[in-house]
Design a protein around this nucleic acid. Structure first.
Length: 835
RNA sequence: GCGGAUGUGGUGAAAUGGUAGACACGCAAGGUUUAGGACCUUGUGAGAAAUCGUGUGGGUUCAAGUCCCUCCAUCCGCACCA
């Protein structure tokens, strides 16, 4: 191999097998459980190709795993594939391939790519969620949830995606559109399977406290908002002249004396009933449905109401009645689907009252501007007068409960998790619908049929299958029908990290191992999963605990959300997006594409196929090698921040690897010359850097760890001709060890020459001697009134008195007056002279 | 509207309240090379200098990028949630 160019291709082919696999048996894991470390990178969907987002995610995880491993931890770092889901169906529809065959080919390809990257995964623990072995176990979990009442049928208005022909969870509706298809989501009344995640709302909220400081604050807040706990009251409003009562939910029951109307949702039973009798009302409701929830309408926020003519009695003001409106802004699935409005102290109520000329009655001391929503003392409120908002709330709720006019109520924004999907490529819901017995657990496993016309997977393929759904009831033996829906794929990704701990177990999880090993020490993934996946995973832990499968309840002790990988995007004058690789500058410096069309540059944003601002890892690996990519993707930017791709900076990483190779060859030459004499100051430097680098790895500040490692390397390079050979070797080998988690191939290639047959990944992390980590000579700042006026170099821990004199000497000529008022000495750092 | 961040050179970024800009990218000059690339050396916040510099304006302190208050800008998440 050339002395100046590191042959990464040779090194990669030589070491890929050894670096891209690392297995730890459960026996070994359990024996070392006190010093175990479980690194979990969120598993990918097997699209067939790793993209830069994957590379960043998995490189971070692999570096953490490798550092911990060298530091003596028993590390497990598994990988798997979240392999059910729409893309396989889309591929099938397009080309008629079997989704299974398509998926498994992709899994094979991606496994190869992951191994080539040198990620030390425990492939013995790999799971693919589409495998029978996995989803059959999942069906057991589902039936357990069914038995516990956590999985239940519910008729409700659901989010219907007419492109994917399926219902979606609330979490999968983004801006009124399907998260995957982008189709406008319609409301449809259907009976579907739901998971009673709301039963755990309080515990899920509570659990966030334990994660403080371990999970990003942002994620905790997002989950807190998503759960959306609010405390208030349900208040009963009697409908005048009938026995009907409208129950109203309010978080501001203290404003009850200021109520001027009641509004009910268009979906409220009373509204529905009225609609049957009154065509005007039914027309109004239909109109609400039409644009009730579209983005544009919400944007305008136009409040619309219909006065039903019905009156209700004010609960605490005898003789007073309030009109009842049907209003487009009242949601049926939050609270009770009915509200009372106090326009003086609520923005939305105020807007509505203005529009329909309803009274605005202030009940809190205000500044004359309405709506007034601040805290204040109550007025016009009889027994609440003089109380602030919090006290008045407590008082009025007590009063309502005492007089049976209402009750205290905690409401959550969190809804139950709708899991039915009218799709083929998912885990079949293992339930049989029997006319005699109702819902009956199916005999497991319920396998997906393979005799399907894959070109025609749209709209409920299991339903359309000629025979699959016809079966006998396991209870009574009569003809019955299978449930033809499959589970939301988030169901699979909610427990895979438990399955990794015993992938072939005949039960879903191996309780002994799970209880010993969980929680995962660090989970690494994109922030896009802050609510969906990470909330479901937390829920699964609680539900599986209550099902008796496990005893732990926290899935991930630490969470790292890595930032996105971004790149500028380019559009040519025809309006087509252009790949960065196809953009260049012409002779005039104008950006043009490879057809010579003028190109406009757009700001950096997340790499995405649609904007073509992608760089393929494959190309980078071919040109610069795996190590250069791994190094570059970690350099320069902290893991949690967005990362801007910069090809010339990547070349810098590549050049650095060649420098390492070159310096190594110089050191080898020096060893051969057996020139052992020289300066030993490198020893101290090495210990100093080792300490700092170790600390940066500990907090996963990988950009800083790398910067410090480069500094250490620069010192080695500077001292190569003057250093004593032992000190030089110690410094260089230490550098190799701390750098090997980042660039394992190069470091192994070099290590194998230094220590034939040995693997650097099996070496112990170097230990630093605390005594050697501080300098004996320090440079101190000399300040006048806090401003830098010079520096002095002195032995560490020089006496203050001596420092003061040295400092005065330095500034003597720089100040005109010499009335020194005070001198402040910070040992080894600063001398500040106050004049 | 609510919630969460983030503002530091041309760029990515460093700085337990104590020498702002480490480490890189880029750029410039020089060397080397048949040429280009690579490599090596030096320089690179502004300013001729004194000095001035961390989004704005205040405050605390011997000392503020860092702590407190004000405002501004950008990004992200949620959003008719009663």
């Amino acid at each position: 191999m050339s002395e100046n160019i590191y042959n990464f291709k040779l090194a990669q082919s030589r070491w890929a097998k050894d670096l891209g696999n690392y297995s730890v048996s459960n026996d070994r894991l359990l024996q070392n459980v006190s010093k175990k470390y479980y690194v979990l990178s969120m598993l990918p969907y097997p699209s067939g190709n790793l993209h830069m987002g994957h590379i960043r995610n998995y490189t971070i995880g692999d570096v953490v795993a490798r550092v911990k491993r060298m530091q003596g931890y028993t590390v497990i770092q598994p990988m798997g594939f979240d392999s059910f889901g729409m893309p396989a169906e889309n591929a099938a529809i397009k080309s008629g391939v079997n989704p299974r065959a398509w998926t498994e080919k992709n899994i094979q390809d991606m496994t190869n790519q992951l191994q080539a990257m040198g990620y030390a995964y425990d492939w013995n623990r790999a799971v693919s969620t589409h495998s029978t072995e996995y989803y059959a176990q999942e069906q057991k979990i589902f039936l357990k949830f069914f038995e516990m009442g956590l999985a239940y049928r519910k008729q409700s208005y659901v989010n219907w995606d007419s492109v994917d022909c399926t219902v979606l969870a609330n979490e999968q509706v983004i801006d009124g559109k399907g998260w995957r298809s982008g189709a406008k989501v319609e409301k449809k009344l259907l009976e579907q399977w739901s998971i009673k995640i709301t039963q755990y709302a309080e515990e899920l909220l509570d659990g966030l406290n334990e994660l403080k400081g371990h999970w990003p604050e942002k994620v905790l807040k997002m989950q807190e908002n998503w759960i959306g706990k609010s405390q208030g009251a349900i208040i009963y409003f009697k409908v005048s002249g009938t026995a009907d009562v409208i129950e109203v939910y309010s978080t501001r029951p203290d404003t009850l004396f200021g109520a001027s109307f009641v509004a009910i949702s268009p979906d409220h039973p009373i509204a529905q009933r009225l609609a049957k009798e009154n065509s005007e009302i039914s027309e109004f409701i239909a109109e609400c449905k039409q644009h009730g929830t579209t983005e544009a309408e919400l944007e305008k926020g136009e409040k619309k109401g219909f006065n039903t003519g019905i009156k209700v009695e004010h609960p605490v003001i005898p003789g007073k009645t309030l009109p009842v409106y049907i209003a487009n802004f009242v949601l049926m699935d939050y609270g009770t689907g009915a509200v009372f409005a106090c326009p003086a102290h609520d923005e939305r109520d105020y807007e509505f009252a203005k529009k329909y000329n309803l009274p605005i009655i202030p009940v809190i001391e205000h500044n004359g501007e309405f709506p007034y929503t601040e805290d204040g003392l109550h007025i016009n409120s009889e027994f609440l007068n003089g109380l602030n908002v919090a006290d008045a709330k407590a008082e009025i709720i007590d009063y309502l409960e005492e007089h049976k006019l209402g009750r205290r109520k905690i409401t959550y924004r969190l809804r139950d998790w709708l899991v039915s999907r009218q799709r083929y490529w998912g885990c079949p819901i293992p339930i049989i619908h029997c006319d005699n017995c109702g819902l009956v657990p199916a005999k497991l496993p319920v396998l997906l049929p393979e005799d399907i016309n894959f070109k025609d997977l749209r709209c409920n393929p299991l339903e359309k299958h000629p025979t699959w759904k016809y079966t006998k009831c396991p209870k009574c033996g009569q003809d019955a029908l299978r449930d033809t829906d499959t589970l939301d794929t988030f169901f699979e990704s909610s427990w895979y990290f438990l399955r990794y701990l015993d992938v072939h177990n005949s039960e879903p999880v191996n309780q002994e191992v799970v209880d010993a090993v969980l929680p995962v020490d660090i989970c690494i993934g994109g922030v896009e999963h802050a609510v969906l996946h990470l909330l479901y995973a937390r829920f699964f832990m609680l539900a599986l605990r209550d099902a008796g499968y496990i005893t732990k309840s926290i899935p991930f002790e630490n969470l790292l959300c890595q930032g996105m990988v971004c790149h500028k995007s380019y559009k040519n004058e025809n309006g087509d997006w252009v790949l960065p690789n196809d953009v260049e500058r012409d002779a005039d410096g104008q950006l043009v594409d490879n057809n010579g069309l003028k190109v406009t540059e757009y700001p950096s944003e997340k790499m995405s196929k649609s904007k073509k601002n992608v760089i393929s890892p494959e190309e980078i690996i071919t040109t610069y090698g795996v190590d250069a990519l791994r190094l570059f993707i970690l350099s320069d930017t902290p893991p949690e921040k967005d990362f801007d791709w910069n090809t010339s900076a990547l070349e810098g990483s590549w050049r650095f690897l060649n420098r390492i190779w070159k310096v190594f060859n110089q050191i080898q030459k020096k060893v051969q010359e057996n020139n052992i004499n020289g300066d030993t100051s490198l020893n101290k430097i090495t210990h100093m850097y080792l300490k700092r680098i170790t600390e940066e790895y500990k907090t996963i500040s990988l950009n800083k760890a790398i910067a410090l490692a480069r500094e250490l390397f620069n010192k080695i390079d500077d001292n190569i001709n003057t250093s004593e050979i032992k000190a030089l070797m110690f410094a260089f080998e230490t550098f190799l060890k701390v750098f090997s988690p980042v660039t394992p191939f190069l470091c192994q290639e070099v290590w194998d020459i230094l220590h034939p047959g040995k693997f650097i990944q099996d070496e112990e992390w170097s230990k630093y001697d605390e005594k050697l980590t501080s300098r004996s000579e320090v440079t101190m700042a000399i300040q006048v009134n806090g401003k830098l006026r010079g520096t002095i170099s002195v032995p560490r821990n020089t006496e203050n008195l001596e420092l003061e004199q040295l400092a005065i000497e330095v500034i003597k000529n720089k100040i005109t007056q010499n009335t020194i008022q005070k001198i402040i000495v910070v040992p080894n750092k600063v001398v500040n002279i106050v004049i």
